[in-house]
């Protein structure tokens, strides 16, 4: 695969976030926009992931999350995430980002403390999983940029659509 300097990516992302803040003038709108942009990336990225990783169907949600954390993050961000804190039903877990290239040079200024700088990642995961019939909710619960010791993404399974087609006998 062709590679480019990772800093190009990091810096491009940074200037994009800056531009969004300038355009939208409201931090929560920026967070929402980042998530939306991530979603649009995710619904396309999933096919790249499936095609290049030659991955097959996952047995359950745990396996899916594992692949996202180990294969997906490695493929697109050259890092991996640790999967922990499963709830008893196996529908909710945390992804701990060990190293996040997006935040390499970032310090959040005063007035931007509510900015979820990497919110795009939440959108990407949500969008990608939705394309394989897994509806999820994803959000940052801890963020190194906002003083936490690690970055933690909380991923919650909402529903699994077993069928790809809208089969309804009463239709």
């Amino acid at each position: 695969m062709e590679t480019i300097n990772a800093e190009i990516f990091t810096l491009t992302y940074g200037s994009m976030v800056r531009q969004l803040i300038a355009d939208l003038e409201d931090i929560s709108a920026v967070n929402k926009q980042l998530d939306e942009m991530g979603y649009n990336i995710g619904i396309r990225l999933i096919d790249e992931f499936l095609a290049k990783s030659k991955t097959g169907k996952c047995g359950d949600f745990r396996e899916t999350v594992d692949r996202v954390a180990k294969v997906g993050f490695r493929m697109f961000l050259n890092t991996t995430a640790a999967v922990t804190n499963w709830n008893a039903e196996g529908t909710e877990c945390s992804l701990i980002l060990e190293d996040n290239p997006l935040t390499d040079f970032v310090e959040l200024p005063e007035g931007c403390q509510n900015l979820v700088y990497c919110n795009v990642l939440c959108g990407v995961i949500r969008g990608a999983l939705e394309q394989v019939s897994i509806n999820t909710e994803c959000s940052f619960v801890r963020d190194v940029l906002r003083g936490s010791d690690v970055s933690e993404l909380r991923l919650k399974l909402l529903s699994l659509n077993k069928e790809e087609y809208p089969f309804k006998d009463d239709d």
């Binding site: 619904i43 990225l45 790249e48």
Partner: peptide
């Protein structure tokens, strides 16, 4: 499975002006 799907992921889905 391999070649055509790869090409589709690369040249169709990564084209920002392609609408899914």
């Amino acid at each position: 499975r391999e070649t055509v799907y790869d090409l589709y992921a690369d040249y169709v889905l990564k084209n920002p002006f392609y609408e899914v």
